[in-house]
């Protein structure tokens, strides 16, 4: 059941109920330049993406490949911190109505204070968090009530190795979408999807979960986006976005998005 705050459905939940497939874009906040964050988000909204994951950079992003690690390292060199990110985003809801999530590792959030972090997110209008190294059991035991208090949806991951029992458990405790990691890998692999992934996509689809699934990891172009969203509700592109930003700067993001969703 969706949690409803002030009689308003969370933007993520609303988006998931709309027709059509969702392209979700991940980028590292503070990259290429410290103050690019807001411009990137505004550009993405204009060119028709469905959801945005703002990456909070971390020194040791162990589920990420070299592209996102390098962008995180650069963002930290540029001076990005949680405090600065919140400051950059303070007026974001004046110009942007897309669902916004923050994706980050747990330690920076823990140091900020989980409750303080969630409170800031609510003030700004962040809709959800993805924290890859915050395990489900710790979340449920310690942090769920805080997330609920501030109207935040926490997104959990599943992988091809996740057992059906655990997938059903994660489905039960989720109230947005399930982040479906496409293959056993860190982010940024680019091999395309083969029979193994397709069988996995079909297997998950057949479970008829209550939460829609959005596929991430290994999606880099129109072809992989279509493969990933044949059965799933949407797909997330991260490393390929960072590579595009590195090569072409922030002004040409619309070209990248157009190539994917036409």
């Amino acid at each position: 059941m969706p949690i409803v705050y002030r009689n308003k459905m969370n933007r993520i939940q609303k988006k998931l109920q709309e027709e059509g497939k969702i392209l979700s874009i991940y980028f590292t906040a503070g990259y290429p330049a410290l103050n690019d964050t807001v411009k990137i988000i505004e550009n993405l909204e204009k060119c028709g993406v469905g959801m945005i994951e703002i990456g909070l950079p971390f020194s040791d992003p162990l589920a990420d490949g070299p592209t996102i690690q390098a962008s995180s390292t650069q963002a930290l060199k540029n001076g990005m911190t949680s405090e600065i990110l919140f400051d950059q985003l303070k007026a974001i809801r004046k110009t942007v109505s897309l669902p916004l999530l923050i994706m980050g590792y747990f330690n920076p959030i823990y140091q900020f204070g989980v409750e303080a972090f969630c409170k800031k997110c609510q003030e700004i209008g962040i809709d959800g968090l993805i924290i890859p190294d915050l395990p489900v059991d710790v979340y449920l035991d310690t942090y769920q009530s805080i997330f609920h208090k501030y109207g935040l949806i926490n997104i959990f991951l599943i992988t091809p190795q996740t057992s059906e029992e655990r997938i059903r458990f994660i489905d039960k405790v989720s109230n947005g979408f399930i982040y479906m990691v496409s293959s056993a890998s860190v982010t940024g692999t680019k091999e395309g999807f083969g029979a193994t992934q397709e069988a996995y996509f079909e297997r998950i689809h057949a479970l008829a979960l209550k939460n829609p699934q959005i596929v991430g990891f290994g999606i880099s172009n129109a072809e992989t986006f279509q493969q990933a969203t044949k059965l799933a509700k949407g797909a997330i592109i991260g490393s390929a976005v960072i590579k595009h930003l590195t090569a072409h700067g922030i002004e040409k993001l619309d070209q990248f998005v157009q190539e994917i969703i036409g």
């Binding site: 020194s59 040791d60 162990l62 930290l76 920076p108 823990y110 140091q111």
Partner: peptide, 22 residues
Amino acid sequence: GKVGIIHGSKTLLMQTTDGQIT
């Protein structure tokens, strides 16, 4: 060090006030 998370474990670790591991 301060309490934080490194390599899958909650422990004492050297980090910045922003939670970046030093």
